[in-house]
């Protein structure tokens, strides 16, 4: 009886020792040498896996940074995070322009009358695939919130009163996930200016002026007044649509006043000084635009 116990203990013990030796040898032989800096870099990153950098996730980006730091930018984290990453890797960080998302459509429910009702699957991607949209403008925002659902930072939300998404400037990291999600290419990443100031053409309609205007009262009609007004040659008009180059724009806001439809939008500027009475009152844009975003959209409705 004792014999059986002794033999079993010896056999099992022997197997255990043998297995331990095999495991030890294999573990030594096939050890994966991972650069400890990858973990360190990954810790510096925001960890949202937004994909704004072009890599599958933050860890992937960290690996890429360790391999070759040059030219890599964490769009969500911005210069602060890249500075930390550079410190870990012991290299010099190169400051990149921070970006911020803007919604290039002002076609709120008021300006853009509905011409049809959409009852299909409630995503922008499918609505855009199926047809031009519920209004006469086949270019503008659909408002079903694909951008909202992809934003990892809660920075973009559809305002159901206007039917348009709004960007929370404080939260937006400029990762560009919403830009990729938008099937109408309404959202654009623009250079982040101090105090989140923005001047941009808030329209993407390429129809001819009359058609665009009929579909939406706030549409860019491609009249070119802004381009003539701009002292810095930052504005180009192509395909009946104006575009402001953010690298040339000095935010003088002359174009905002010149725009007859209010398609050019200014955000986060202090209220303008009241003009002398002789000056003709420009289109409603300057008045509304003087306020911050949420208030402005409520006034638009």
């Amino acid at each position: 009886m004792d014999n059986v116990i002794v033999i079993s203990v010896l056999i099992l013990g022997g197997i255990a020792i043998l297995a331990a030796v095999i495991l030890y040898v294999i573990a030594r032989k096939f050890k994966v040498e991972e650069d400890p800096r990858i973990d360190q870099v990954a810790e510096c990153l925001p960890g949202a896996n937004c994909g704004g950098c072009g890599y599958a996730g933050c860890r992937n980006f960290a690996e890429a940074c360790v391999k070759d730091f040059n030219g890599k930018v964490c769009t969500a984290g911005g210069n602060d995070v890249m500075k930390k990453v550079a410190d870990v890797l012991g290299v010099e960080a190169v400051a990149a322009d921070a970006k911020i998302a803007v919604v290039r459509c002002r076609g709120s429910k008021d300006c853009r009358p509905k011409t049809s009702n959409y009852e299909g699957a409630p995503t922008c991607a499918i609505a855009a695939w199926t047809y031009g949209g519920e209004t006469g403008c086949a270019f503008g925002c659909i408002g079903l919130g694909d951008c909202e659902s992809v934003c990892q930072f809660g920075a973009i939300k559809v305002n159901h009163e206007t039917g348009l998404p709004e960007v929370n400037d404080e939260k937006c990291t400029g990762c560009g996930a919403c830009v990729k999600a938008c099937p109408k290419i309404v959202i654009e990443l623009r250079k982040k200016a101090p105090k989140f100031r923005k001047v941009f053409v808030s329209c993407v309609n390429k129809d001819k002026g009359a058609v665009a205007k009929k579909a939406c009262s706030a549409a860019c009609i491609g009249c070119g007044k802004c381009a003539k007004t701009c002292p810095f040659e930052a504005i180009t008009v192509e395909n009946n649509l104006a575009y402001i180059d953010f690298n040339k724009c000095k935010m003088c806001r002359k174009c905002v006043e010149a725009c007859p439809t209010g398609a050019i939008k200014e955000e986060n500027f202090p209220p303008r000084k009241p003009k002398e009475e002789a000056a003709p009152a420009p289109a409603k844009a300057p008045q509304t635009a003087a306020q911050s975003t949420p208030e402005k959209t409520s006034e638009n409705k």
Partner: peptide, 12 residues
Amino acid sequence: RPILDYMNFGKG
């Protein structure tokens, strides 16, 4: 369910 909407989108 809007099955066909999804199917058409996926197929395209």
